[in-house]
């Protein structure tokens, strides 16, 4: 019944309905149900390839391609459709013009930027008056995880205390980047719970980022607007390593490593 009803709808209209249906469903699910809207830049890419997919599905046979093109052919070739054609030929350039106008219109909105989330680390860096080699640098307390679990737990707890005293204001008490200061910051503080942040990085990388903060970021992709403090000025070397233990322990992520 439904199939017969659908087959009566012209192919072009059916294709358009599929595209609109997908768009509306995605918007309803992500914006309405989940409360996390799909950003416009991503939605544009998604919808472009949805349209490509629908076009492919409707035109891979000769009959399908003919059925898709039929209304367009009729519009251009059928003399009886002249008034409709004139309206369409007027509306299409007008719509294109309106779209271009709204896109080019200056606004008070800050321009979007392609932010580099993981700046490439240098091979060596200076902190606490000495030079560290990032290729060989390891967390000196990590070994206790196996060798002395009790001591390891104590170190993690110490790291937690240091975190709460110093870091949670921005990165949040749940390590999700939503601390009380976070709404005032742009870029917002990193969410350590996310699978794409500390779970992707080695502990040495975290040590470099924490110790040298925003001013220690490399020239690549400058200018940086990070408000991350230079923690070597406020914390001891050991304290940073303990905080790193806590970050991984609390989130359940494992630091990136090449070997077990």
């Amino acid at each position: 019944m439904m199939g017969r009803l659908l087959s009566r709808i012209p192919a072009l209209l059916r294709a358009a309905l599929v595209v609109v249906g997908i768009y509306l469903a995605a918007t309803a699910i992500f914006s309405g149900l989940l409360g996390q809207p799909i950003p416009a830049s991503l939605m544009t890419m998604y919808m472009f390839f949805v349209i490509v997919g629908v076009f492919m599905a409707f035109t891979f046979t000769e009959e399908g391609a003919r059925a898709m093109a039929a209304p367009i052919r009729a519009l251009v070739e059928n003399p009886a459709l002249r008034p409709v054609r004139n309206i369409v030929f007027l509306l299409v350039p007008l719509a294109a013009g309106a779209f271009t106008y709204t896109k080019m219109l200056p606004s008070l909105e800050a321009p979007v930027e392609l932010r580099t989330i993981h700046p490439a680390p240098p091979s060596t860096f200076k902190a606490y008056g000495k030079r560290y080699d990032l290729l060989t640098l390891e967390n000196p307390f990590r070994k206790y995880e196996k060798e002395d679990p009790e001591r390891f737990r104590a170190l993690v707890a110490e790291g937690g205390k240091i975190y709460i005293r110093n870091c949670q204001f921005c990165h949040g008490d749940k390590l999700n980047g939503r601390g009380p200061f976070a709404p005032a910051l742009n870029p917002v503080p990193l969410n350590f719970q996310d699978v794409g942040t500390i779970a992707q990085l080695q502990e040495s990388y975290l040590f470099w980022r924490i110790a040298t903060g925003g001013p220690g970021l490399p020239e690549e992709a400058a200018p940086w607007i990070s408000s991350m403090p230079v923690w070597q000025n406020f914390l001891k070397e050991d304290e940073i390593w303990k905080v790193i233990l806590f970050l991984y322990d609390y989130t359940g992520h494992r630091p990136r490593a090449w070997e077990k």
């Binding site: 809207p37 830049s41 917002v188 969410n191």
Partner: peptide
């Protein structure tokens, strides 16, 4: 790639 409004809506 987010506008400020989207950034706020997503919370990060």
């Amino acid at each position: 790639v987010l506008t400020n409004e989207e950034l706020k809506a997503l919370g990060g």
